[in-house]
Simulated assay, not measured.
Amino acid sequence: MSQTFSNNDQIGVVSTFSELINANFKGEMNALCWERNLDGDFKEIVSKLQLKENITEVFREDLLELKLSEQGKTAREIILNDLQLLTDFGASPSLNLLKNYERDEEFDFISTDVYSYHVDRSPIGTDTFLCTYHGAASDIIANDQVEQKILIPEVRQKLKDLHNGSEEDFETFLREYFFDLHYQPKPNAQPINLGLGNLWRLAVDHPEQKVLPCIHRAPVENNGEFRLLLIC
C-alpha cells in the first residue's frame, strides 16, 4: 500500500471493489481508494480512440472495435471490467476521452469550473467514483486546508454586488449558481494527487451524508496529452 494514502486520515485504502463500495466514511475520512498498479497499455488505447469534442464519451462498442496489441487488450479488459462492476453496483459510469474541460472565465474574482477545488452535490444518497487510466490525475485536499470561496470577504462582497438583491435571497443565489461549492486552498495546503489506475470513491454533499464532502479538482492537462477518465 502507498504510504501517502494509507497514512492519511482523509483516505481509506482498500484492496477489492467489494470493500470500496461497502466501507463507510467516518470522521475525517471522506475518500476511499482501491489502490491498484494496473498492467496494460492504456496509452495505446488513447492513441487509437477518436476525439470528436473536447470531452468525448467512449462506449463499450468503441473499445471493442479497436485493434490492439496484447498489452492494449489487457488495458481494455481492465476498463471493461471496471465499467461492468460499477454498472452492476447500480451506478452509471462514463468513460471519457478528455482534451480539456470548459473554463469559467465569466468572473475574474471567482471560478466555478472543475479546475477549481469543489465538492459534488446530490439530492440523493450517492458517491462520486473516478479513475484516471492515462494522463494527468485529479487532486483532493483536506477540508481543513481550504476556505469556502463565498466566505472570503472580498469575494463575498463582489457576489453581493452581483446579486443586487435582498439579504434573504442571497444564500439561495449562491446555491443556485453553485458558488457555494467552491473552495480556495489556504497557504501551505498540501493537495493529494489521486494517481493513475486507482479507483476512488469520494463523499458527496447530500442530506444523508455523515461526513464532510470530499473537495477535489480536475488537473490541468499535460501539454499534448489526452486524459482517459472513468467517472460516475
Rank of each mutant, 00 (worst) to 15 (best):
C131G: 10
Y133I: 05
Q3D: 10
Q71R: 11
L68I: 04
L202N: 00
D205G: 07
C232E: 10
I78L: 12
T16P: 05
E168L: 14
L68D: 08
L98I: 10
Q84T: 12
S92I: 14
G197Q: 07
R121T: 14
W34E: 03
L83E: 04
G165N: 15
R103G: 03
F17C: 06
A218Y: 09
C131W: 04
S6R: 08
E57H: 08
E28S: 13
E44A: 04
K210G: 05
Y183T: 01
T74E: 13
K186S: 06
G40W: 12
F173Y: 15
L98N: 05
V114H: 12
T132K: 10
N37Y: 04
H216T: 04
N24S: 08
P187K: 10
K73P: 07
T112K: 01
S122W: 09
P213R: 06
S116G: 06
N193P: 09
L229Q: 01
G125W: 09
F25H: 02
L83G: 06
I110Q: 05
N193I: 06
C33T: 06
G195D: 02
W200L: 01
Y101D: 03
F109G: 01
I45G: 05
G195K: 02
K149D: 04
D127N: 10
A136I: 11
N37G: 11
K160C: 15
E171V: 12
L95T: 07
F178I: 11
N37M: 13
Y101I: 08
R156A: 07
N223H: 14
Y177W: 12
Q157R: 12
D205V: 00
C214F: 08
Y177T: 15
I21T: 07
P123R: 09
I78T: 14
K67H: 15
V220R: 08
F173I: 11
L199P: 03
L228D: 00
S94P: 11
T74H: 14
S94K: 15
P185K: 00
E168V: 13
L49P: 00
L229W: 02
D144F: 03
L38M: 13
G195P: 01
M29W: 10
L230S: 01
E221H: 09
F170L: 11
I141N: 00
P207C: 07
V13K: 01
